[in-house]
Design a binder for these strands. Structure first.
Length: 519
DNA sequence: TACTCCGTTGCAGCT
DNA sequence: AAGCTGCAACGGAGT
């Protein structure tokens, strides 16, 4: 019997390498490609204007591509568990397909939807295509635990072999027996205004959303074979005037570009040539993504400090003034403020720029919890991927994965290495553009006469630095040392085995393992 | 258990 | 220019 099918797009906003969509088309007489605007995810507080616009672009592109296949995208608003049962009845649906999503919110949502589907006699089909591998298989291969080091992660992946090859997008031929009721004037695309953002200060999108742009951008980058083969992430500049990396991350985050398509396209370029290797290569970057996805599945409460077994417990300060200064680009450190300005304005900043501002907010200078930084990044980044965002904040704050807390980024020195004239600062903070090169990273050191000549008085036209970095960073290293000392105490004080008992004291790793097997 | 080795991306100062 | 050292010193993983 032929099916009436909903393919539910959530991430995976693409037609290429979309196995769940292909499953929808098999034995299907009628398809409803669907996107649900979920108030829990798509709201003004958690989704800033830039990522919202990116999503709009991606949906528009998807609708256009589906129309070329004589179909369209249907957009509805509401909680999926409320909306879907109505649509099941209204459209006479017999099957729903979607891409598997590992995020905790998505998993609980999908569990509820699965139950509702069963109640309505709707078959549920889901496929793995957001990650290179089946994340649960990686954890299984590592004895039920998420690997906590990249080296270990690579060893585990070797046992699994290379990722699956991507599959092509459906063609008109694939769709020839599949109808879509077009229902024009219903289920239309959302508008940019819909979330109620202020659009007046919005500049043209540097990175427009959508699969077409994603594949164009991929090809554009892959043409530069020498650059691709010699790519080493730590050697790329955080403060070049145009991006020094691919900026494919927003497209991978929303699934406009398949990670597997990216992986195999890189393999094509590498073929027969000498090339860089993980962790620094472009393949290595995709593996970092996979690493954090695996950790986010294997570690409970991954995006929090409390009850997160891999996260060092640190006595972060509550300091709304410092936090506001950081997020609003008025710390008085031009490099930090320029990065935060670029983030807010354009929605993308280089990975090392993220390091610099993340270190500054947390263990380096302001001693504010990484969870606060995580929220700001989540709102403003085009590539605010839940697992990567949490994982990188854990890393940078030296709360997990990375432990050399005595390596502190200098808000003055770090940027100078790759932009000694401060052109990047002048681009994003034009108020400083007349400062002489020698003061551009430290304008408060300029004599008043120089400040006057530059038309910018520090403390009036541009803020004075909110902390004394050299002093505070040394103090903070000592605070880190204290937190780490407590950490090892906690581990050694964990319950000892009773005499004669075979079981060892549960370590952090055992806790992880137990949590995982309970699932 | 105790030990070594090593870790995508620190900084300042030196050669 | 790239690569070393001293700074004060971490944990995970393997032996």
């Amino acid at each position: 019997m032929a099916h009436v099918c909903i393919h539910w797009f959530r991430k995976g906003l693409r037609l290429h390498d979309n196995p769940a969509l292909m499953s929808a088309l098999r034995g299907c007489q009628e398809i409803y490609p669907l996107f649900i605007l979920d108030p829990c995810i798509h709201n003004k507080d958690t989704l800033g204007v830039n990522p919202w616009r990116f999503l709009m672009g991606a949906l528009q592109d998807l609708d256009g591509s589906l129309r070329k296949l004589n179909s369209r995208l249907f957009v509805v608003r509401g909680k999926p568990q409320d909306v879907l049962p109505q649509l099941f009845r209204e459209w006479g649906v017999s099957r729903i397909t979607y891409e598997y999503d590992t995020e905790p919110y998505s998993r609980s949502r999908d569990r509820k939807v699965s139950e509702l589907a069963k109640e309505h006699g709707v078959e549920v089909v889901y496929k793995i295509s957001h990650t290179l591998h089946d994340i649960d298989r990686i954890i299984e291969e590592n004895n039920g635990k998420a690997p906590l080091t990249y080296v270990r992660f690579q060893t585990v992946l070797k046992a699994l072999g290379p990722p699956k090859r991507p599959i092509p997008a459906p063609t008109v031929q694939d769709m020839k027996d599949v109808k879509t009721q077009c229902l024009e004037n219903h289920y239309g695309l959302p508008s940019l205004e819909e979330l109620g953002h202020d659009l007046s200060c919005l500049q043209d999108a540097l990175f427009p959303g959508g699969e077409e742009e994603a594949l164009r951008r991929l090809e554009e980058n892959m043409q530069r074979t020498g650059w691709v083969c010699s790519f080493e992430k730590p050697q790329t500049a955080p403060n070049s005037l145009s991006p020094s990396t691919t900026v494919l991350s927003p497209y991978v985050t929303f699934g406009c570009l398949s990670a597997r398509t990216f992986w195999w396209r890189l393999s094509d370029v590498y073929q027969g040539k000498k090339h860089s290797a993980p962790p620094v290569s472009l393949h290595g970057q995709l593996l970092w993504r996979e690493f954090y996805y695996t950790a986010s599945v294997g570690v409970p409460n991954f995006d929090r400090m409390l009850d997160n077994p891999v996260c060092t417990q640190i006595d972060w300060d509550t300091n709304p003034e410092y936090l506001a200064a950081w997020r609003e680009a008025r710390t008085g450190f031009p490099f930090i403020d320029a990065v935060m300005t670029q983030l807010r304005r354009e929605g993308w900043i280089h990975h090392l720029a993220r390091h610099a501002v993340a270190c500054f907010l947390t263990r380096g200078d302001l001693w504010i919890s990484w969870e606060e930084g995580q929220k700001v990044f989540e709102e403003l980044l085009l590539d605010g991927d839940w697992a990567l965002n949490a994982g990188n904040w854990l890393w940078l704050s030296a709360s997990a994965f990375f432990h050399q807390y005595f390596r502190v980024y200098s808000p003055v020195a770090f940027g100078k290495k790759t932009d000694k004239h401060g052109d990047y600062i002048k681009k994003y903070l034009p108020v400083l553009k007349k400062f002489p090169v020698e003061y551009i990273y430290e304008p408060w050191k300029a004599p008043l006469s120089v400040q006057k000549a530059a038309g910018c008085i520090v403390g009036k036209d541009y803020p004075s630095p909110i902390v004394e970095h050299d002093v505070i960073s040394k103090k903070n290293i000592q605070r880190m040392k204290t937190s780490y000392a407590k950490r090892s105490q906690v581990v050694s004080e964990s319950p000892q085995p009773k005499k004669g008992a075979k079981r060892k004291a549960p370590s952090v790793l055992d806790m992880l393992k137990n949590n995982n097997s309970k699932k």
